[in-house]
């Protein structure tokens, strides 16, 4: 039974990290109908910022997430202003292709500047630490990242559901033209959404180097899993993204242990196919 609960804990912790990465993607995909292919690369950039702050000025990831979150917030806004905005009036695929190009530029820039080296922060405050409770262990870096994920997701949820800004975002998501007629500045809303999306992934990337290696391709698989979570949770649904990410984490952990470790990603993508077959709008989509 201990093993069962341990797997559940591992799955939930992994799922919470996926949630933090997914929420940002869900925001712009749901509201703007834009797929940001560079989302995983934003994560990688945030991880590099956290790594370099840790390496050069000994700032721990527990603090440097502020810098990486802020940087990615600005990066998100710039991406909107310089790239996405120009694609919105074009065919649906143009934004996807443009962000795909951005992804290649960012990745190759990092490859060129930082080399393909794997970089690992050694002495972090949380690194290697864990809490042991009755035979169950909770790795502290993942636990703290998970708590951050929950807080950020609920802050975003609160903003969307309880503030005038959130209502404006929801209005834009439902009908952009009607929202504009009501006096909502959709351009500003979109820019802010891209910023918020960047900030979420920036916070995740800022915290991850406390236990993960940083290298230019680190964001690729995270990004794919985030796409799955968004589609499973329902486009634009914050709670849906959270629940889907937790579900993906649990399915990955249980599938990996009880079926075979090699099948853990197969199970995730299999579940995704089942969900989109029977409920194309996702589990919590409207």
């Amino acid at each position: 039974m201990t093993i069962f609960f341990q797997i559940a804990i591992n799955g939930l912790l992994v799922g919470m990290i996926y949630a933090l990465i997914t929420v940002g993607l869900s925001l712009i995909w749901g509201v703007m109908n834009v797929i940001n292919f560079a989302h995983g690369d934003f994560l990688m950039v945030a991880m590099y910022i956290s790594y370099w702050l840790g390496f050069l000025v000994h700032m721990d990831p527990i603090i440097s997430w502020i810098a990486s979150g802020t940087f990615c917030f600005i990066l998100g806004i710039l991406t909107y202003r310089l790239i996405i905005r120009r694609c919105l009036s074009g065919p649906v695929l143009s934004a996807l292709l443009a962000t795909f190009g951005l992804s290649l530029v960012i990745r190759n820039f990092c490859l060129n500047r930082f080399s393909p080296n794997f970089r690992l922060l050694r002495k972090t405050l949380l690194g290697g630490k864990k809490i042991v409770l009755g035979g169950l262990y909770l790795p502290l870096p993942q636990l703290v990242t998970g708590i951050f994920a929950l807080v950020v997701v609920f802050v975003i949820y609160y903003i969307i559901k309880r503030t005038r800004l959130g209502w404006a975002i929801e209005a834009v998501a439902m009908d952009k033209e009607a929202a504009e007629l009501m006096g909502i500045n959709t351009d500003k809303i979109f820019a802010l959404l891209c910023g918020m999306s960047g900030a979420c992934v920036g916070i995740a990337g800022g915290l991850l180097p406390s236990y993960l290696t940083v290298y230019p391709e680190v964001g690729v698989l995270f990004c794919f899993i985030a796409f799955v979570c968004v589609a499973m949770g329902g486009f634009g649904s914050i709670l849906g993204a959270l629940m889907a990410a937790l579900l993906v984490g649990l399915v990955e952990a249980f599938g990996g242990f009880y079926i075979a470790p090699i099948f853990k990603y197969v199970v995730i993508f299999g579940l995704y196919l089942v969900v989109v077959t029977f409920r194309p709008k996702g589990l919590f989509g409207w």
């Binding site: 591992n10 698989l221 990955e252 990996g256 075979a260």
Partner: peptide, 14 residues
């Protein structure tokens, strides 16, 4: 066996 570049190796080590 595991997929190279995995996000975690929890199941494998478990």
């Amino acid at each position: 066996p595991y997929s190279p570049g995995a996000t975690n190796l929890d199941s494998e080590v478990m």
